[in-house]
């Protein structure tokens, strides 16, 4: 039986690991699922000694008022779930990474060993570097990433006005990067800007695509459409897609291992698409110093998702055991 990273419903995962004192990290977004992880954790009754809550500051746009109100509501729910333990830290979404470094350093000096990191409503621009700082520090015995699936997506677009695809913070290439062995793109319902990268003559010769299994025809159509367009733009560069579950961090990581022949060479990653898959790409990139590119939206619609999904009687809140007993589970 092969070894696979452990993941599953957070409620069950927390009950399946040795009891310990946890430190929870969340991001206060405008969506209802921003507080789902904290509520599940509180419900399970594990010992959460402290909690950091990031509140992201973004430039004013036409959604600001509505978004701020919803973020306030999230904070209220978070405070109710973590009474007396929640520390709110404001951070510029488009600022430097210093605050994240300070946060991680703070955990280390406060002796926090076991981290629960909720990435559900944390932009990739934030959780990618945060993961890197945390994992590279080697200071934590346990690190569980958490992802909450929404009940459904609203009709409006999530976000607008993306930057062109640029390296994520702390995932920039070296000055004269080695020739890329290949690329891995995780598709989502938006893959903005990859064609631009290709048009400028950039990107590797051979690009593998990770295709999340859709759960409805609309998602299926859109994702295939993106695949077809990428393929059409550069038929000699894209290999037929690899399919995987949008929630299966372990499978994504396993694919990356096999695509790269056990992490040989220098790979170029573009983690669009589902967050659990992105987490797998982040871990691979952290271990092997690979760059990761992403088109960061600059305006977020506060009404983009509704509720929290369910899995049977449970909330669809999943935990991914990334680090256990100080070892990266990969």
């Amino acid at each position: 039986m092969e070894v696979r990273p452990i993941w599953g419903l957070l409620r069950m995962l927390l009950r399946s690991v040795l009891p310990r004192q946890w430190h929870l990290v969340v991001c206060a977004g405008p969506e209802e699922r921003s507080s789902a992880a904290a509520e599940v954790v509180a419900g399970v009754g594990v010992d959460v000694a402290s909690a950091d809550c990031l509140r992201l500051l973004v430039p004013t746009d036409r959604f600001s008022a509505e978004r701020e109100k919803k973020v306030d509501d999230t904070l209220a729910r978070l405070r109710a779930a973590m009474p007396g333990r929640l520390q709110v830290r404001e951070m510029e979404l488009f600022g430097t990474i210093e605050p994240l470094d300070e946060i991680v350093t703070g955990w280390v000096s406060a002796g926090r060993q076991h981290i629960l990191l909720d990435v559900s409503t944390m932009p990739k621009k934030i959780f990618f570097p945060l993961l890197r700082l945390a994992i590279r520090s080697r200071a934590f015995a346990t690190l569980i990433a958490i992802y909450s699936r929404p009940q459904k997506y609203a009709e409006q677009p999530l976000a607008e006005d993306p930057d062109p695809p640029l390296p994520l913070p702390l995932f920039t290439p070296a000055q004269a990067p080695p020739h890329a062995t290949g690329g891995i793109v995780a598709l989502g319902l938006e893959v903005l800007g990859i064609e631009d990268l290709l048009a400028d003559g950039g990107g590797p010769n051979s690009i593998h695509v990770l295709f999340p299994i859709p759960t409805n025809p609309d998602e299926s159509s859109r994702t295939w459409m993106f695949m077809q367009r990428l393929y059409s733009a550069a038929p000699n560069r894209f290999t037929p897609p690899r399919h995987l579950s949008p929630l299966d961090y372990g499978e994504a990581y396993s694919y990356i291992r096999s695509l790269t022949d056990s992490f040989q060479g220098h790979w170029w990653l573009a983690p669009f698409g589902p967050k659990p898959v992105s987490v797998a790409m982040a871990v691979a990139a952290i271990q092997h110093d690979w760059p990761a590119y992403y088109s960061q939206p600059t305006v977020y619609n506060p009404a983009y998702s509704v509720g929290v999904g369910r899995e049977g009687r449970d909330l669809a809140v999943y935990g991914y055991l990334l680090v256990s007993q100080g070892q990266l589970q990969a």
Binding site: M12, L13, S16, V17, L18, S245, D248, E251, S324
Partner: peptide
Amino acid sequence: HTLYRTAFSSRIRPWLFDHTRQLVD
């Protein structure tokens, strides 16, 4: 093929953990 593997990772294995009556770590 992916569904077979995901079924195992995401549905079957956690259920089996419960039956293992031991903590995963």
